[in-house]
Design a binder for these strands. Structure first.
Lengths: 110, 110
DNA sequence: TATCTTTATCGTAATATTGCAATATTAAGT
DNA sequence: ACTTAATATTGCAATATTACGATAAAGATA
């Protein structure tokens, strides 16, 4: 088929998958990198930073927004996008927990 | 088109995107969860744990393997899959760094 | 009001992903 | 050699993603 059977997995599994998927494209990673670099919200200039057309960037921003990774406020003419702090703390937690579990095991059978 | 322009982004951006993408499906998250739960390698019983057909699970395992997240050793008749420890440490680092940068800023303009 | 700027949306093409039945492969046991 | 068990591969259908040109929408500015 092609449709993902999200209903067969736990909420946590689906949540991590959704967040990871949103970060699963270099353009979207680059958008986050840029948001961190400029140390403020971005109001439009991302399009000039990325090697992609404006509609494509707009689409990637939308996807990041849908996943809850960034949020956008209308600021007069432009739109101000910024990172949602909580989400990356959550991602960090997810992977820290996994890394810790692996550290504890050390069952190097492979 | 549909093809991702990986050559336009940095190696780090592409690396994170590849790893995140591999974790961007609940079935693959569930596979990792199970690998952590059983506290050893998995030799076949993942198919019984997941609500997916054997070829589908095999495909997801292949994708995790391609991303370098798990590795598989042939163990006689069965195949022994286990997590590559380094990769999750790397993922943790990636997101910890981002979370730290966000913490430092606190430019709550939005 | 006319125009510019900025961002979103629509439409569409190319490609990738997801899922499974059928089949192949490989090693073990008989 | 035959059979069984475990896993991979192939082929295919359904859907999703990625990318962009054209166009729309909405506020700013002249």
């Amino acid at each position: 088929m092609g449709a993902t059977k999200t209903d067969h997995f736990t909420d946590k599994q689906n949540e991590l998958a959704t967040l990871a998927k949103a970060m699963g494209h270099p353009a979207r990673v680059a958008i986050i990198d840029y948001l961190l670099k400029v140390d403020s919200c971005i109001c439009g200039d991302i399009v000039n930073e990325l090697p992609l057309a404006q509609p494509t960037v707009s689409q990637h921003l939308k996807e990041l927004k849908n996943a809850g990774i960034i949020k956008g406020n209308i600021e007069g003419n432009a739109i101000c996008y910024c990172i949602d702090e909580k989400v990356f703390a959550k991602l960090q937690q997810f992977f820290t927990r996994i890394a810790d579990k692996i550290e504890k095991k050390k069952t190097n059978c492979c």
